[in-house]
Amino acid sequence: MALLEIRGLTKDFGGVRAVDGLDLDAAEGEIVSVIGPNGAGKTTLFNLVTGMTRPDRGEIVFDGHGIVGLRPSQIIELGIARTFQNVRLFPEMSVRENVMVARHCRTRSGMLKAVLRPPSFRREEAETREAAERALAFFGARLVGWRFDTPARSLSYANRRRLEIARALASGPKLLLLDEPTAGMNPHETGELIGLIRRIRDEIDVTIVLIEHDMRLVKGVSERVVVLDYGQMIAEGRYDEVASNERVIEAYLGRKASPA
């Protein structure tokens, strides 16, 4: 059984059908890329899976749980974490705190403990901190040391993207959804990210589904590529298979003028 199974997923926004009867699976340990022209429903798909938008129809089964109707905070607890297309950090919080927030669903202490500070609370805080620093250490020296305490808003753009990934990782996901992780990065940084995504999958074996426009990254990391257009899957397969698919080219470039 696949880790994530999507069946007949449909979402309308006022007359526009953003996702249209979509079926999609992601097997455990896989890296799947979702590509498609702008407005194909890719980000909506992520919003539906993470519970930020409620689908009109269809089923999403993750790790044996039907997750349609659960709140986003419950879904991340089950093990689906995401990043956002337009980087959404907590700008006034420090780098470390940003990541520590993601441990919320793995920790339990409440207000009373926070005020009384028993040993169990201190232990949990220390663990949270460690987990956060570990997640940040994934990116080498970039987000560690003095950067722990700088506010997220003072980071460079690429570092903000990295921080977002670290934050998602810290929640201990089984499935990681990356929404255009390289948007705004230069070629060198993109190259680095290709290696990193593989490392994440291999070292902490999470399944990764990513949305991407940069074909270099798609080619570099994905074991399977899914192409969406108008909310439907129009092709699926290995990168080179998909890249030569007639319908995909059509979706990106438009239909060839028929000979008169």
Partner: peptide
């Protein structure tokens, strides 16, 4: 503390805080 961070995250961006596990 955990709850304090949850508050601040919520102040910064409520829907992201929720997506990151804050109830």
């Amino acid at each position: 503390s955990r709850i304090g961070r949850a508050w601040m995250a919520m102040r910064e961006d409520e829907s992201v805080a929720e997506a990151m596990g804050v109830d």
